[in-house]
Amino acid sequence: MRVTLFDYGAGNLHSLAKALATVPGAEVRAQEDPLRALDTDVLVLPGVGAFGAAVARLAPGREAMRAALEQGLPCLGICLGMQLLFDGSDEGAGAGLGYFAGRVTRLAAKRVPEIGWNQVEDERTLAGARLDTVYYAHSFVCRAADASVVMGWTTHEADRFPAAVRRGRVVGVQFHPEKSSTAGVRFVQAFLREVAP
């Protein structure tokens, strides 16, 4: 199974690549070209950086990537990678993939960025890995227009936001599974086993 990380210059991919590689048969590689990144069995949009810079790197492959997701390419978007799956963001100009309807806005809280471990309520993204407490490092969140895609919620101060979304074989998570210790690694493994095969 070819697993491709779309590397849009965000930096640290080591932990994520290693977490994905724990699944037998997963061949993990990084690809900077958004079109070539689609020549894969599983696409992963990793999660560090700023929205504007990321969508600029994504732009040449945006339409093709959206079409591939609609046609069933399994995809896991993490943090900023999840935000890229939505229409657009208050953080920066440019269009996201628009696979999920809704806009990315700043956390409505006193303490921003939210940095640390927080709970996910009613988490039901995957059958094989239920999550409880996961690691966040973010200032923006996805306001999903359709609540039925939300697979778990987290509350920071008074702001309740989608921790995870899923439609078909595309999953987005606002937290960092690759930084959420054993439970997070199990989530990544369950994604590859349940969604991708």
């Binding site: 640290n12 080591h14 932990s15 690549a17 290693k18 690691y135 930084k179």
Partner: peptide, 8 residues
Amino acid sequence: TAEQLFIP
């Protein structure tokens, strides 16, 4: 370390 550690 980053390749083997799954916390921040």
